[in-house]
Design a protein around this nucleic acid. Structure first.
Length: 286
DNA sequence: ACGCGTGCCTGTTGGC
DNA sequence: TGCCAACAGGCACGCG
C-alpha cells in the first residue's frame, strides 16, 4: 500500500511526464471517486501543471491559468490506487480496456504542450482512492487536508517526541495522520522494530530519549525506502509502472511467524487497532 | 471529547 | 483440483 516513500516515488516519476504540460482533457470514468468538497474535473481542463508535489500520502498537482487563481488536484491512492503516465496516449487507451490496470480506471486525462503527448490514468481496483480539485482556500476547508499533521521528514526529533503522547498504543499514534502525515502500517511496524519498541506500548509512557530514537529510525527507513523506490507488496507501482525494492529488506512487516533476523526468535503477529501488526517479543521491550 | 470499532471494496490466498 | 471464507488496511464515521 502506498505510504510516504511510495507516494514520493510516484510524484518523482510522474513529474517529468506532466510538468509544464497543459491538461487537454480530464474526466472521471465509472464509479465516482471525487470527494464531496471537490469541483468537477472538467474545470482543470485548459490549465498547465506548474508543480507536482507530495503532502503526507497525498499527491498534489498545482494547476495554473492566466490571471486566475491556481487550482490544486489532490490524489490519495489509499490501498490499491495507481497513477500512471503514458507518453504515447494511444497505448493508454489500449491499456484502459485491455489490461488489469485499465480495467479499474477511474480517471482518464490527456496532457500536452501543443498536442496530446501524455495520458494520465488513475486506476484503483478497491475503489478506496479519492480525488479533490479546488482552490487553495477550498483545500484548506477540506477536513482531510486541513487536519494533516507535520511531515515526518521535516518535523525534527523534538517536535516528534512532543507529539507522540497520550494513552494510545504508540503504533496507533504513528498511524494517526493528524499527528504526523505519511506513515502507514509498513513503516510503523518497521520503525518500531528498529527502535526496539513494542507496538502496543503506551505512547505517553515512552521516554523522550526512546522517542528521539524512534524518530531517527523512522526517518532513516523512510529515506532508505525512497532511495529504493518504495515497497511493492502486491499492487503498488510508480507512474512508469515500475516496482520498488524496499519490501526485500522488511524486518517484520508481513513476516509473522518467521524468524527474527536479530535474535532468531519467532516474530509475533497480533491485531492492534484493527491492523495486522508484527513484532519481535524479545527485541522489542515495553 | 476522545478513542475504539465498523464499513467500505475486491483481488489474492489458504484451507478443506 | 476447485471453491469459498478470510484477509489485506487507510480513512470516515458512529457510538459509548
Amino acid at each position: 500500500m502506498p505510504e510516504l516513500p511510495e507516494v514520493e516515488t510516484v510524484v518523482r516519476t510522474l513529474r517529468p511526464h506532466v510538468a509544464g504540460k497543459k491538461i487537454l482533457k480530464l474526466r472521471t470514468v465509472g464509479t465516482p471517486c471525487l470527494v464531496p468538497e471537490s469541483r468537477s474535473l472538467e474545470e482543470a481542463e485548459g490549465r498547465v501543471v506548474a508543480e507536482a508535489s507530495r503532502r503526507g500520502k497525498f499527491i498534489v498537482l498545482r494547476l495554473t491559468k492566466d490571471r486566475e487563481s491556481d487550482l490544486f488536484l489532490v490524489i490519495h491512492l489509499r490501498m490499491t490506487g495507481r497513477l500512471m503516465a503514458y507518453d504515447r496516449p494511444e497505448s493508454a487507451e489500449e491499456n484502459w480496456t485491455e489490461n488489469l490496470c485499465g480495467r479499474h480506471a477511474r480517471v482518464f486525462g490527456l496532457l500536452g504542450v501543443s498536442c496530446a503527448d501524455c495520458a494520465l490514468v488513475f486506476s484503483d481496483a478497491r475503489k478506496f482512492g479519492r480525488l479533490f480539485l479546488g482552490t487553495e482556500k477550498e483545500r484548506a476547508d477540506w477536513s482531510s487536508w486541513a487536519r494533516l499533521g507535520p511531515e515526518p521528514l521535516d518535523m525534527g526529533e523534538e517536535a516528534f517526541a512532543g507529539a507522540i503522547t497520550g494513552r494510545r498504543a504508540v503504533k496507533s499514534v504513528l498511524l494517526d495522520q493528524t499527528v504526523l502525515a505519511g506513515v502507514g502500517n509498513i513503516y510503523a511496524d518497521e520503525s518500531l522494530f528498529a527502535a526496539h519498541i513494542r507496538p502496543d506500548a503506551e505512547a505517553g509512557s515512552l521516554s523522550k530519549a526512546r522517542l528521539r530514537r524512534l524518530y531517527r529510525e523512522l526517518k532513516r527507513l523512510l529515506l532508505l525506502s525512497i532511495e529504493q523506490c518504495g515497497s511493492s507488496i502486491r499492487d503498488y507501482q510508480d507512474a512508469d509502472g515500475n516496482v520498488g525494492a524496499f519490501q526485500n529488506t522488511f524486518a517484520v512487516y508481513g513476516r509473522g511467524g518467521d524468524m527474527c533476523r536479530n535474535c532468531r526468535g519467532k516474530l509475533k503477529r497480533v491485531v492492534l487497532g484493527g491492523r495486522g501488526t508484527v513484532f519481535c517479543p524479545r527485541c522489542q521491550k515495553t
